[in-house]
Write a protein that binds this DNA or RNA. Structure first.
Length: 290
DNA sequence: ACCGCACCCTGAGCGC
DNA sequence: TGCGCTCAGGGTGCGG
């Protein structure tokens, strides 16, 4: 599932395919929850405009247009952005291990390809595909605020221990649940929350208010370290994630606890435990995390 | 303000 | 073979 590292890899690889290009036509599927801006509006409004910047905020991607409107994209759980060159054979072997992606390289758009941007030049189309439709697309008017975007906390890669420590004040929820709150640190999802808490030696069930300043420093440092490593590895492919070139991530090979319940802990060899917190499966080591 | 939980959606995997 | 069930989870919104 795309969290900050996967979204950042997507941004970096998509950027050269969109910057400075002018949209010629937009193809969409039928209206659905996927479209916060109705598809017929996107088809009408986007053509003729040039994409000037592609930014990331937490797990959001924002394409700024030449008229200062913004196209806001969220990949949800199964969202994929592709730079689709016609007639170029897609790569691909199986991913190195752990979870065989359901997705295979797409030779043609299918019913899950909800948005296709075609450009005035001969370069690739950009496709937004999302089987589960937990992803979202919205076109913001000039200077129009986005309620979700504006509520995001500090980007997880920019955060300091103090940011987390202040957010933990008087919060009685498990630290794992707090880490998933996008208004606290933007970009942290289920995988990296578990991995960072393991690296910091903190049990995910511990109440947020019971973390010390030093605990928070370790969690934030671990998040930054792990996310940077993951970005360098092309992100984590657990089930569906593919980058704009339809390549799998490789960071799943480096995961220490996520998806490893019952397998031996990297440090102490005790079996990794699993429980559910905030309706999300949570993985940790009873021995190494207190 | 805080917190728990149902819900959105689809495909995979499983038992029968 | 095929049906029906459960599970996965990012984010929203509601009720207590």
């Amino acid at each position: 599932m795309p969290e900050l590292p996967e979204v950042e890899v997507t941004r970096r690889k998509l950027e050269p395919h969109v910057l400075g290009r002018t949209i010629r036509a937009v193809l969409t599927t039928r209206p659905s929850v996927f479209f916060l801006t109705p598809p017929h509006v996107l088809r009408r409004e986007l053509p003729g405009h040039r994409i000037s910047v592609l930014r990331r905020f937490g797990k959001y991607l924002v394409a700024e247009l030449d008229d200062e409107r913004r196209l806001v994209l969220h990949l949800g759980m199964t969202g994929q952005l592709f730079a689709h060159r016609a007639a170029v054979p897609a790569i691909l072997a199986r991913p190195p291990s752990r979870g065989a992606p359901r997705a295979a390289p797409l030779p043609a758009p299918d019913r899950h390809t909800h948005l296709r941007l075609q450009f005035t030049d001969a370069g690739p189309e950009v496709w937004f595909r999302d089987t589960r439709k937990f992803g979202r697309v919205r076109l913001l008017a000039r200077v129009q605020a986005d309620p979700r975007l504006d509520k995001l906390g500090t980007d997880a890669l920019q955060a300091r221990g103090l940011d987390l420590f202040e957010a933990c004040h008087r919060r009685r929820i498990p630290i794992k649940v707090l880490l998933l709150d996008q208004t606290v640190l933007a970009g942290v999802g289920n995988i990296y929350a578990d991995e960072a808490l393991f690296a910091a030696g903190i049990r995910p069930t511990r109440r947020a208010c019971r973390l010390t300043r030093s605990d928070c420093d370790r969690v934030v440092a671990a998040l930054r370290r792990i996310m940077h490593r993951s970005i360098r590895s092309g992100g984590t492919t657990v089930s569906d994630y593919l980058d704009p070139d339809q390549r799998f991530g490789r960071y799943q090979l480096a995961l220490r606890v996520y998806g490893r319940s019952g397998e031996p802990c990297w440090h102490c060899r005790e079996p990794v435990s699993r429980l559910v917190l905030g309706q999300r499966s949570t993985h940790f080591c009873r021995c190494c995390q207190k």
